[in-house]
């Protein structure tokens, strides 16, 4: 229990003192995870909606794959991106390994299946409900996508938040492709892993509390946005 008490004190000190190193790590974590989620959302929402609305050969297989990849182990995603970006790999010439960009790519790979698979489910349910209505208004499937996404926005915000949770919580992928370089690619989760391996458990747990606060703040902001949107919608 002693180290848990210390962790709360440590977390409190870390936050109150606005330690510049910690601030940098928090900002980088937010920057990497939010970028990854944003890119995955821009691809995942239309992709999920398209899979929901169209019937094509291999659709069942695609849905199964999307669902299965929600459980892609971060360390495997990291290894795949590492092999792609490594100098000996196909994208090696860009020199992206051990940069924040590599971390965004890896997290995007983790988040995309979650957003696409859950969007598919949400849109498919809405389509069942409104298909007749939309068809009678003369809307094609492609034209129906923005309407359905807008209609399902409240569920979809939760979907995106699930993706953000995945991105901000994982350590395996960013550790491999980022290298946990001090001041360059060190994020909250890799800093926590490092302090754990140094045996500084109170600091590690303190950082963990700061990370949870950070994630809670992002979720809180999304909740408030959702509430105001709901109020506007009446």
């Amino acid at each position: 229990m002693e180290s848990a008490d210390n962790a709360f004190i440590t977390a409190f000190h870390l936050i109150v003192s606005m330690d510049p190193v910690l601030t940098g790590i928090v900002l980088l974590s937010l920057q990497v995870s939010l970028s990854a989620v944003l890119i995955a959302t821009l691809i995942g929402l239309p992709l999920g909606a398209a899979v929901a609305l169209w019937r094509f050969p291999g659709r069942g297989l695609l849905i199964t794959l999307l669902n299965a990849f929600m459980g892609l182990p971060p360390v495997v995603a990291g290894l795949m991106v590492y092999l792609m970006l490594s100098r000996a790999g196909p994208l090696g010439q860009f020199g992206l390994l051990f940069t924040p960009t590599a971390m965004v790519i890896a997290q995007c790979l983790l988040v995309l299946p979650i957003i696409a698979a859950l969007t598919r489910q949400v849109v498919e349910d809405l389509w069942k409900e409104y298909a007749e209505q939309l068809k009678s208004l003369g809307a094609s499937r492609a034209r129906a996508i923005p309407t359905l996404l807008w209609d399902g926005r409240i569920s979809l915000v939760t979907t995106v938040l699930a993706g953000f949770g995945r991105a901000s919580a994982e350590v395996g992928a960013v550790l491999i492709v980022g290298g946990n370089i001090d001041g360059v690619t060190r994020v909250m989760t890799t800093a926590i892993a490092l302090e754990t391996s140094r045996g500084d458990l109170p600091l590690a747990l303190g950082l963990g509390l700061v990370l949870m606060l950070m994630v809670a703040a992002v979720n809180g902001a999304a909740f408030l946005l959702g509430e105001s949107a709901r109020r506007q919608a009446g």
Binding site: Q31, L34, L38, F98, T99, P100, V104, I181
Partner: peptide, 29 residues
């Protein structure tokens, strides 16, 4: 907004003078 975030995330990869040193956990820790 997406473009701005992308620019931010690649902004830290500025072409400054640095090397990547692969080393052991014992020296780092």
């Amino acid at each position: 907004l997406g473009l701005v975030l992308l620019a931010l995330s690649s902004g830290t990869v500025a072409a400054d003078r640095h090397i990547i040193l692969a080393s052991t956990t014992s020296t780092e820790q």
